[in-house]
Design a protein around this nucleic acid. Structure first.
Lengths: 342, 342
DNA sequence: TGTTAGCACTCAACAGCATCGAGTGCTAAC
DNA sequence: GTTAGCACTCGATGCTGTTGAGTGCTAACA
């Protein structure tokens, strides 16, 4: 059996209705809808077919139908008609985004807030992979006797800083001199090229080898591992509680627990390098606790490279239309803010 | 009617039991407890008196009794016997705390985590008031053409940094020179004395007045307002969901909403300068949404001054004993980490 | 006079049962 | 191919009776 025009129409009507109400949809409801000119009985026949084909589920015999994950998949791939954001909305989002500091973490934090506000779902943003950034400036600031703060400024802005230990008795002036050398050698290099640059630096080192070595190590560590917890940022964690899917406290707890594990989140949001929207529905995201959630992700760029991920986690019956529009817009906006960086 | 020995004993037994079970306590339950040698009937008479005196509430006629807020007040003021943490626990907490970077925010973040883990409640920590800190080092790092990152290192560690705008065409070397001047003049001054120091600097300014002026402004702004959102940090927000008091989703939502408003939290945790533990029970905290929560707070020092607040928010029937012990210990530990700062 | 046993009473929680109604599947007529 | 009609299903709702934890009161006891 194949899906004909009418089946598509009815399936779409069911999904649209279910996204709105979260209640099983009956044949009468669909029949009454404008654009569907059939009686409940006809709809019922079609629904029965759709159930057999795996697009609908029936919670119990005398209830309406509920879209299956397969239906959502079909919906996002073929049925969905995209809606535009109003220019008003766009402006508001843009405004909230740029009115923040030039620090990468700050920008991302505000972006996560904007995302969750605009969608009423939970948003997650992964900070730019350091490997895609270019160094503009490196500076060591003395902090204590044997400690210095390393600030790395990249083309995306200020990257979170790290404290490194330095040799005893190093003065502020000496640290500054080292900083100058570092900046000189590393400026405009992608972080990936840091290794070679450092090797060279170490060969004809005027300054303490150990210091340079440690600095290199720190940069490298951040480069590969993807850094510490703070580079996965969650917006509107409590939004999910608004939906009847999570009126069960223990479910809500599980959900919040997932949000607290930054590693899990990073894995959940990982994606290939393409700039396209990716949608994972229900079990497709491989995490039992999120079995009735969908995750929609997009990429943002810094400079020329695809660099980080922004995403929305919501119930499988989420408003995919709107979420996609918002993510696309915010992906571009975020790319702009982090790239065109003045 | 006055409270005699026996009434104290019974009241304490009731509170202890209720804290454990969150279920109305009956006379038989108390009677069976070791240390109470009376029959249920006697207990009932006493309970009746205690209810009349306002220490107990009865949800309905045939239910047991529940401690009133007045009872909790009496309990924490007089009845409670303090328990010690095991040295094992202390060590574990200490370990988790110190194994972190030297940045104030990082230390506080990890402290909040330790607190919420140790108590199973939600923890909140307010970052040190800048006015109590002493400057050790100020440095401007070039970020873009007309922007610089100002890093302030204090006796507590690295204070969150701010981006300020600088005059066009300022080189890194010039910025460094300004930084040196700033550091020289401000070193070891409390942030409060910054104003005078700056006035002096401005009078015989070798470097650009505008830059110095703006830098001063930034420092001052952070000094008075108490800074931005990131200096109130919440640990274990989802812990509250474990308690039957919050099995109602809408209650849980309200609670989480409070945690998202950093301003409200800062007000909730405000306290006089003393180092003593403060306990606010139920309505005492003036916030309807937290009417059946208690808030226990303690202070920590940086150097010689009382400087910031750490607190626990939990149900009114929380384990005050343990919470107080944990807060006292962590207050000291946090003071040490931030003060003895090597 | 303080303590306790006994007893009638109260009331939330729970299980059982009938009712209701939204929704279905099937059949027959259009 | 479409639709009206109808019997059927089953969760939700509400009513009822039962149970049991817990109380207050009274009277007996030490």
């Amino acid at each position: 059996m194949q899906l004909d025009e009418r089946k598509y129409l009815i399936l779409q009507a069911i999904i649209d209705d279910y996204i709105l109400t979260a209640m099983p949809v009956g044949s009468r409801t669909i029949s009454r809808k404008s654009g569907v000119g059939y009686s409940p009985a006809t709809i019922r026949n079609e629904m029965s077919d759709l159930e057999e084909l795996g697009y609908l589920d029936q919670p119990h015999t005398s209830a309406g139908r509920v879209p299956s994950n397969k239906a959502y998949r079909l919906y996002v791939d073929h049925l969905m008609k995209t809606v535009k954001l109003t220019s008003d909305e766009r402006e508001r989002m843009q405004d909230h985004l740029v009115a923040k500091s030039k620090q990468v973490e700050g920008v991302i934090r505000s972006a996560a807030g904007v995302l969750s506000d605009a969608t009423k779902y939970t948003s997650v943003i992964v900070a730019p992979k350091l490997s895609t950034l270019r160094i503009k400036h490196v500076q060591l600031v003395p902090v204590a006797d044997r400690l210095a703060l390393m600030v790395i400024v990249t083309n995306a802005g200020i990257v979170k800083d790290a404290v490194i230990s330095v040799p005893e008795g190093m003065t502020a002036d000496e640290l500054y001199a080292v900083s100058r050398t570092l900046t000189e050698k590393l400026a405009d290099k992608p972080l990936e090229a840091v290794r070679q640059a450092f090797a060279e630096l170490l060969r004809n080192a005027e300054y303490n080898r150990k210091l340079l070595g440690e600095t290199l190590q720190v940069i490298e560590k951040r480069l590969e591992a993807g850094g510490d917890a703070s580079d996965v940022i969650v917006g509107g964690p409590a939004n999910m509680l608004e939906y009847p899917e999570y009126s069960d406290v223990s479910k809500a707890r599980n959900f919040l627990a997932v949000l607290e594990s930054k590693d899990t989140l990073r894995k959940l949001l990982s994606r290939d390098g393409s700039m396209e929207i990716s949608i994972r529905i229900g079990p497709e995201n491989q995490l039992p606790a999120l079995n009735d959630c969908s995750i929609v992700t997009a990429s943002y760029r810094v400079g020329d490279h695809s660099s980080g991920t922004l995403g929305i986690i919501g119930p499988t019956r989420m408003n995919y239309n709107r979420v996609i529009s918002v993510l696309e817009f915010m992906g571009r906006a975020l790319s702009d803010v982090l790239s065109e960086y003045r």
